[in-house]
Design a protein around this nucleic acid. Structure first.
Length: 497
RNA sequence: GGUCGGAUGGCCGAGUGGCUAGGCUCAGCUCUGCAAAAGCUGCUACAGCGGUUCGAAUCCGCUUUCGACCUCCA
């Protein structure tokens, strides 16, 4: 079906992708914790895996894409803060926990929409799957790999590691973890400090709580993903994605839980995107250097020189391979904005071009080159989703499109077949696979008519050589954010900033 | 401290041992009443030092340096 190869974090090498059920793909991506607003760093995995989903779909796979929402506040595993994040903030803001969850869920969905991310097939919530999580925990206890203490349940990592390769995904060595000198509170209940919570007893002040066989409490941090992914994708599914910072302990724990519960490893291909950095540092809550999406889109942040359109952010992210770090700066975002504008305008030009229909290429060398650039796009995507290279090729093609329009290249230079391929390539990769869309929404007919009137008046002034008037129209429109372009053929087009 | 990953031209970034990625910026030119847009041309870099090789940005070693994870984190 395809030649797709992807880098599997588990084996640390590129592997040929073969789904366990031919023609179908199960894709699970770690979604947000809706206790706060999404920031630029969060945008990366969602855009990265949106492209993964789009490309798999493009290849003809039937993909079930599951992306969870963590709406049950979790303790830190060692309970250092011993506070439920959601519950705490709810008190500060005097909101019901679920009200807060709803607010940030809505905001998150808005952000996803702005980025033109496709909705997942299923978007399960942690609070909606408490029963599944409890069942899974009971199963793990029954199999002897978890123990209850004071209403909390912990996973016995040391015992697990005796039979299974604990730490393989994240490159941890159990003995090293056990030797770590770091002392954390709330460890006394555990048999070993490496153990992690499956279920936590809820102290009286804790707002979010559910009845369980071990008393009132709430699920541990890692169990929801295991419970929900197996429910909707089966106990073995194809791709699990998330940020690199989730490798440990989150994904390592998921593997351990699921392996005990189901008797085998849950995931066939693990994919992890790298971080977005700012001044060379990971953008994250702990560094206090986040730029929220609302700030990014509005420009309302001390570090921002301007507002950035969601499509500019998307383009900027896709210009870099997903496993490389990507450094934020105004300069690079502005470069992305200019670049994307140019590319998208070429795409619009390509839309309008008509090919004369010659079957033979007038310029066989160019024809062959264009064909190569077009077909390479698939090879690049097949090579671990190399969107950067795809974009580079589209930029190779853009001047050709513009030159056909501008007359520097003859209309007949390309064969009809190649021209069609060129149009399809832009459509498929820029729109369908990379998920890009226009920066500006469609203009209303009324505005268009008004502008056409002004353009017509300017044209008349120019024929009279009344350049004072024509320039005035152009300059005033420019001040209003409407840029006029005199085309080679005498027509005039406009773009609205 | 442990584990892992980076260091590429003015900036951002891709790179599968040999064949200039690409973008942005900048300069010149073409087109244009002027501009903008577009097109063309120019700008050959791979942290340092060794090694392997006919040939290294790419492989190996060391050094310098930055970062990620080890704790909630995309």
């Amino acid at each position: 079906m395809s030649d797709l190869h992807l880098y599997n974090s588990y084996t640390r090498q590129k592997e040929k992708f073969e789904p366990s059920v031919p023609g179908h793909v199960g894709l699970y991506v770690c979604g947000p914790t809706v206790s706060g607003e999404s920031h630029l760093g969060h945008a990366r995995p969602y855009i990265t895996f949106d492209v993964v989903y789009r490309y798999l779909t493009h290849l003809g796979y039937k993909v079930r894409y599951v992306r969870n929402i963590t709406d049950a506040g979790h303790f830190e595993e060692e309970g250092r803060e011993a506070e439920d994040k959601v519950a705490k903030k709810a008190q500060l803001e005097r909101l019901e926990p679920m009200e807060l969850v709803q607010k940030y869920t809505n905001l998150y969905h808005w952000g996803m929409h702005m980025f033109n991310n496709v909705n997942p097939s299923i978007e399960p919530t942690a609070t909606g799957h408490i029963v599944e999580q409890i069942n899974m925990i009971q199963d793990i206890i029954a199999k002897g790999y978890a123990y209850e203490v004071n209403g909390s349940v912990y996973f016995d990592v040391k015992k697990y590691a005796e039979k299974y390769p604990y730490g393989k995904l994240s490159g941890r060595v159990l003995d090293d973890l056990l030797e770590t000198t770091r002392e954390l509170d709330g460890q006394e209940e555990k048999r070993n400090k490496v153990d992690f919570a499956l279920w936590k007893n809820a102290p009286p002040e804790h707002i979010m709580r559910w009845t369980s066989p071990w008393g009132e409490g709430f699920p541990g941090w890692h169990i929801e993903c295991s419970a929900m992914s197996s429910k909707y994708l089966g106990t073995t599914f194809d791709i699990h994605g998330g940020g690199m910072d989730l490798l440990f302990p989150h994904h390592e724990s998921e593997i351990a839980q699921s392996t005990i519960a189901h008797g085998h490893a849950p995931v066939r291909y693990w994919m992890h995107n790298n971080m977005i950095t700012i001044d060379g540092r990971k953008m994250g809550k702990s560094y206090n250097n986040v730029i929220k999406l609302t700030e990014l889109f509005s420009g309302n942040h001390p570090m921002l020189e301007q507002a950035y359109h969601p499509m500019v952010i998307r383009f900027y992210i896709l210009q870099t391979h997903y496993r490389s770090t990507l450094d934020f700066s105004n300069e690079s975002l502005q470069a992305s904005e200019r670049a994307f504008r140019r590319l998208w305008e070429a795409y619009e030009v390509l839309h309008k071009l008509q090919h004369p229909g010659n079957a033979e290429a007038g310029d066989p060398t160019l024809d062959a080159q264009v064909k190569t650039w077009c077909t390479e796009c698939k090879e690049f995507m097949d090579d671990d989703f190399n969107t950067a290279k795809v974009i580079a090729n589209l930029f190779e093609l853009a001047p050709i499109v513009n030159s056909i329009k501008g007359g520097q290249i003859a209309q007949t230079a390309l064969s009809a077949e190649t021209f069609k391929l060129l149009q399809e390539t832009f459509k498929v990769y820029l729109e369908d696979v990379l998920g890009m869309q226009a920066l500006q929404v469609q203009q209303s007919d009324k505005l268009d008519k008004v502008l056409m009137l002004l353009i017509e008046m300017r044209k008349e002034a120019r024929t009279r050589k009344d350049f004072a008037t024509s320039d005035q129209i152009r300059n005033k429109l420019a001040e209003a954010g409407v840029l006029l372009k005199d085309e080679k053929d005498g027509s005039v087009s406009y773009t609205i900033e």
